[in-house]
Nucleic acid binder design. Structure first.
Length: 786
RNA sequence: GGGCUUGUAGCUCAGUUGGUUAGAGCGCUACGUUGACAUCGUAGAGGUCCGCAGUUCGAGUCUGCGCAAGCCCACCA
């Protein structure tokens, strides 16, 4: 072995080796128990890959490698999310595209080109990090495989009456010009104003109501007061005359009105918020006035305010109210505004026709499903529960956009009947393909294909199934679905996790996976979230080149599961040091092993130090297993570090030097046999975290005994209990204490540890062999004990 | 407004079911070139365990009330 480990060339060597030998290929014929992973398909539009990506993917991968060594048949496919609005927006921005000036076909082509570039970036990085996915099992969410399954999902839910199409007020982004869903919202606390507006009432002087959205006055549907409110109860049933428009609206009595809020009188418009929609549903006699167009401008129903944008209209209307003397006062106030999380635009509520999936009726069952999942860490379930409890909208799945999976649906031009394709004909593009038969209702033959595309989560919510269906044969697919593990980031619990649970619940009446492992954020060294805007990230490839992939992976073990982690180059350096230490220790050990013929010693030939290190290893293996089984890779790593650096390097290797350099043959043989076994186990314990260096050393020496062509296919170290003697190493612990005492004494005298001293006196009772051990390992001429 | 998480050495964090003198790595100080490794070793300095109250023979750990940071959720117009 060379003096130096040249990580750059060796890591590349092993990458090629793993590729060539298909080490991570799923074995379809194996009888071993399956561990299948629902790998997160990253947005390919994230061209700025950073430490956060490294962190979350490595963390899941530590577990995957561990499971592989524990004898599971691991299924670890890889997907790329290149469908839908995120990609569209990315392409629009990157090429400064105006959607109205490009054909749908050309735009989609551009998106596809871009996603190819993105996928390659990811694949390159994953490969260089040694992420052990099976690259023969990949998908992209826009490809035919995924479109087919997404459309099948639509048909299945339609047939199960869980999908409906309806003209209804929906959450609307005026910038992206599409309907969105509740999960696409982001709440933003804002300073705003509370306007107190006077309406006329025949029997009174006036009725004052307060609102944060005065611009919706032309769309006012009515005013409500609490029937218990003494101030207003007599007004219920009368009509109020609104300022500016002079429109007359009824005054209603509603229990839900908070008498203490504002003036106790609320006005409802179409639509300023979810309240308004709810109110309208409770007052079927009221006809709404829709004044807002899909582009966020007022239409002719807003009268003189036609053509204005919302913010301009507000300014104008407030001015006019003031002129008319209808504005009593304005108060400052904080309130929560919802924006579209992709673009930050304020969300509006517009009446359009969309497809929905019924989830509101299913809340209770969905909460139950959340309870059945094994959450790691457990407290992340809170996020799921509070999301489900807070749901107010059915899942709107249609998007008025270009790039996405088309809905498999046509509308009969004559009678409006919805026609769906046969499952065997999927995927279809209804804007190009035609139904195979005439309208079953009216025999009409003119159809219009649905032009909307599906919400990107319609596809992503099916990833466990998409992954499983990458293999042939229903029997095998059923073994892979439901998956075992879903690793993911906490911020998409309400989307990816939730929607996947919904789909699996409806389609298969099951959970989509049994375990969830939630990772935190990558932060910069100052604790800020890594973002493109702040440019506060380092390029992973640079770090890999400088310190090696193992070192970077080592850094990723640093955060507890679910915790955020700061970028810290010192930790990467520590990883590199660990790699070097492994190299040096192995070089030392293997140097002896290669020149000797080692015979497995009898139990009674083992010396106290051998038994001690063996016991210590056994308990380390046990603790590691416990931690890895709980997805606590960082605790597992600490255990291994501690054992390797302290017990193995600082003590045991020092303890056996006198035996391997000289000593009698039996003692030497026992030492070498032990050290070989311990080192082999250390490599395996580290293998899930440091796959490159451990492979290197395994291949150098241990492979010829174990037989497996890669350490990553080898067996996890055995807990050989036959030698294990828990609590039986107390005597050796006392000796260790003396070792420390001798070292301290020498250090205090400014002596080198290696310098021989004449005598060492202790009150401890020692056996002859213990005295000899101290004399030989600590260079003392004579140890005198009580 | 509700909920969750976190608060331990200068920094990053461990700390099991409550149990002697609270730990590790980095950094700092001193010493050491011992036949794997200075990418090392040995030793040392450094702590009001966020605060207050309580339970207990005993609290970093359990309970309550606060404080601070972060996150999730929330229609109060």
């Amino acid at each position: 072995m060379n003096n130096q480990y040249d990580f750059e060339t060796r890591e590349e060597h092993w990458r090629s080796f793993w590729d060539k030998e298909s080490i991570y290929r799923f074995d379809e014929k194996s009888e071993k128990p399956i561990f299948s992973v629902d790998t997160p398909p990253p947005y390919v539009s994230a061209e700025h890959l950073h430490a956060g990506h490294i962190m979350s993917y490595s963390q899941a991968e530590f577990i995957v490698r561990y499971k592989r060594m524990r004898g599971f048949n691991v299924y670890y496919p890889m997907g790329f999310d290149d469908n839908g609005l995120p990609t569209e927006r990315y392409v629009e921005q990157k090429y400064n595209i105006d959607k109205s000036k490009i054909s749908r076909k050309d735009f989609v082509k551009k998106c596809l080109e871009e996603t190819k570039i993105g996928a390659k970036n990811y694949k390159d990085l994953w490969r260089s990090l040694g992420i052990s996915v099976d690259w023969t099992k990949t998908y992209s969410t826009i490809n035919e495989h995924c479109q087919k399954i997404s459309q099948w999902s639509f048909l299945d839910l339609y047939n199960k009456k869980k999908i409906y199409r309806k003209e209804a007020p929906v959450l609307w982004c005026t910038r992206c010009q599409t309907a969105i869903s509740q999960a696409d919202l982001e709440a933003e606390e804002r300073k705003s104003k509370f306007y107190f507006i006077k309406a006329k009432v025949p029997t009174e002087k006036e009725l004052v109501f307060a609102t944060t959205r005065p611009e919706l006055l032309p769309a006012c549907m009515g005013i409500s007061v609490n029937p218990k409110d003494k101030r207003y109860e007599h007004l219920i049933g009368q009509k109020a005359i609104l300022p500016l428009t002079k429109k007359k609206v009824y005054i209603y009595g509603d229990d839900s009105v908070d008498m203490k809020m504002g003036t106790g009188a609320v006005y409802y418009c179409s639509f300023g918020g979810h309240d308004d929609i709810k109110w309208l549903a409770e007052h079927p006699d009221v006809k709404p006035t829709h004044i807002l167009d899909i582009n966020g401008r007022f239409n002719e129903k807003a009268g003189k305010y036609k053509g204005l944008k919302i913010c301009d209209a507000r300014e104008k209307i407030v001015q006019d109210l003031e002129k008319e003397g209808a504005l009593e006062k304005v108060e400052d106030r904080e309130n929560v505004t919802f924006t579209h999380e992709r673009c930050g635009t304020d969300v509006e509520y517009i009446m359009t026709e969309n497809w929905f999936i019924d989830i509101l009726n299913e809340k209770r069952n969905l909460l139950q499903k959340g309870k059945e999942l094994n959450w790691h860490p457990e407290h992340m379930k809170q996020n799921y529960d509070s999301w489900v409890n807070g749901l107010k909208w059915d899942w709107c799945i249609s998007r008025q956009r270009y790039y996405g999976v088309p809905f498999p649906a046509w509308y009969c031009q004559k009678c409006g009947e919805v026609l769906l394709p046969n499952e065997n004909d999927l995927p279809v593009d209804p804007t190009v393909d035609k139904p195979k038969e005439d309208c079953p209702k009216c025999k009409g033959s003119e159809f219009k294909g649905e032009e909307d595309v599906m919400d990107t989560w319609m596809t992503s919510s099916l990833t466990p199934l998409i992954g499983a269906k990458l293999v042939e044969g229903e029997k095998l697919q059923k073994k892979l679905y439901p998956a075992t593990l879903r690793p993911q980031a906490f911020e998409i619990i309400r989307t990816w996790l939730f929607y996947t649970v919904v789909k699996s619940h409806y389609h298969h009446d099951s959970l989509p996976f049994s375990d969830v492992m939630i990772s935190g954020h990558g932060l910069d060294e100052r604790g800020r979230k890594i973002s493109k805007r702040l440019k506060n990230y380092v390029e992973p490839q640079k770090i890999v080149k400088q310190y090696g992939a193992d070192a970077l992976r080592y850094w990723a073990t640093g955060a507890a599961l679910g915790g955020n982690m700061r970028w810290n180059e010192e930790e990467v350096k520590k990883g590199k040091k660990t790699v070097n230490k492994l190299w040096n220790a192995s070089r030392f050990v293997i140097g002896f092993l290669e020149n000797e013929k080692i015979i497995k010693p009898n139990k009674d030939e083992l010396e106290d130090a051998d038994k001690w290190i063996h016991d210590s290893l056994m308990s380390t293996i046990g603790t590691c297993e416990k931690h890895f089984d709980n997805y606590e890779y960082s605790k597992a790593r600490n255990e291994i570090d501690d054992f390797f650096w302290n017990n193995f390097c600082d003590y045991y290797l020092e303890f056996i030097k006198y035996r391997v350099y000289g000593g009698n043959e039996k003692s030497k043989n026992a030492a070498l046999s032990t050290v070989s076994e311990i080192l082999s186990s250390i490599l395996k314990l580290y293998a899930p975290i440091l796959p490159f260096i451990t492979e290197e050393i395994y291949q150098t020496y241990f492979k010829k005994f174990e037989g497996e062509k890669s350490i990553h296919l080898s067996k996890w170290p055995n807990k050989d209990e036959s030698l294990y003697n828990p609590g039986g190493n107390k005597a050796f612990d006392a000796v260790l204490k003396l070792v420390n005492e001798i070292r301290a004494q020498k250090t205090k005298q400014g002596m080198s540890i290696g310098k021989e001293i004449d005598e060492f006196i202790t009150k401890e009772k020692l056996t002859d062999s213990q005295k000899e051990f101290l004399e030989k390992t600590q260079r003392v001429k004579k140890v005198i004990s009580a």
